[in-house]
Amino acid sequence: MSSVSKYFSGLFTGIKSLLFGMSVTWKELWTKKVTRQYPENRDTLVISDRWRSELTMPHDENNEHACTACGICEMNCPNGTIKVISQMIETEDGKKKKILDKYQWDLGMCTFCNLCVLTCPSDAIKFENTFENAVFNREKLKQQLNHEGSKLRDKKKEPLAPKAE
């Protein structure tokens, strides 16, 4: 007898559980859909400021950056993604000085660990959240971060800058 009652109770609890499952999907049928419609939503898309997708070297309006070409970032990068190519020049007062010639960064080799930014003593580089980095060719992933003809920002001059305007 017990096996018969087991047979039927199994049948009915089974059916009940299935109906419960269907009630959940029925409810979900009417809930708000969560798909994000990229690229239509580009204007409203919020990407966190902290999102790391592209290393940049901010330049100011005088085309000056803060990189002293010290090479600390290059040394700290675990993947050899950064190449700091420097130049020796002679300043007006006859001293030798190292300046930045090319700052190369290869997006394809970067693991976005943020060590370069953390360790840079001059805060010369930072990550931007511009995430649309797809290109057709690996060569295009190699970027030069310092602009053409840019130079090192003179630290002492900095407070004067607003006056100059």
């Binding site: 999907t25 979900e28 809930t31 859909k33 798909t35």
Partner: peptide, 8 residues
């Protein structure tokens, strides 16, 4: 199916 799964 998509509507059941909260998609479009």
């Amino acid at each position: 199916t998509a509507f059941f799964q909260a998609r479009f």
